[in-house]
Amino acid sequence: MSSISEPIRGRVYVLEDNIDTDLIIPAEYLNLVPTIPEEYHKLGSYAMAGLPVSFPPFTDKETGKTPYAIMIAGRNFGCGSSREHAPICLGAAGVKAVVAQSYARIFFRNAIATGEVYPLESTERLCDIFKTGDEAEIAADLSTIKDSGGTVHQLKPVGAVAPVIEAGGIFGYARKTGMIGN
């Protein structure tokens, strides 16, 4: 089991199934390069900019940050493109973890490789239980999420990727295991 230094506490933003990468970060913003610091922050301000206008705003227009530390979703979160801008814009906006029933492979991999957000899997359909704005707490061992009523919901073990998460991403893992030099 993986673990982080302290629990993740904050408000949740709730979405359903098949949240695709065009909703997370529309292609018109892919001219921004995530490794250029000011463009990294700009990407954060555009997080979830592809959602229809009927959804609650995700980021604060003035700060470019999100008041939601945790994203809750249904199945197949992050389907579509390989754009790493997707997990990066969430991380840059201030999201710490996504808790979904399942992930599209490339999003999951990019989230782990970059260390930008923890892609955690729920055992229940939490998007039917949580409402946007609810407070929640993810345990430091990443095994559970507690809702505002105090009910604890189990998360799936992170499994084989735990060492990569603990190392902070693919480069950290490769250094730790001696694949590449320090």
Partner: peptide
């Protein structure tokens, strides 16, 4: 670094899309 890299399996290659960080790793190693 594009999800439609899977196209190239049509010629019997293993081909798949990855993100920038994985690609940066491949570029070096």
């Amino acid at each position: 670094t594009d999800s439609h890299t899977c196209t190239h399996g049509a010629l019997g290659a293993f081909a798949t899309g990855i993100g920038n960080t994985d690609a940066g790793f491949v570029l070096g190693t």
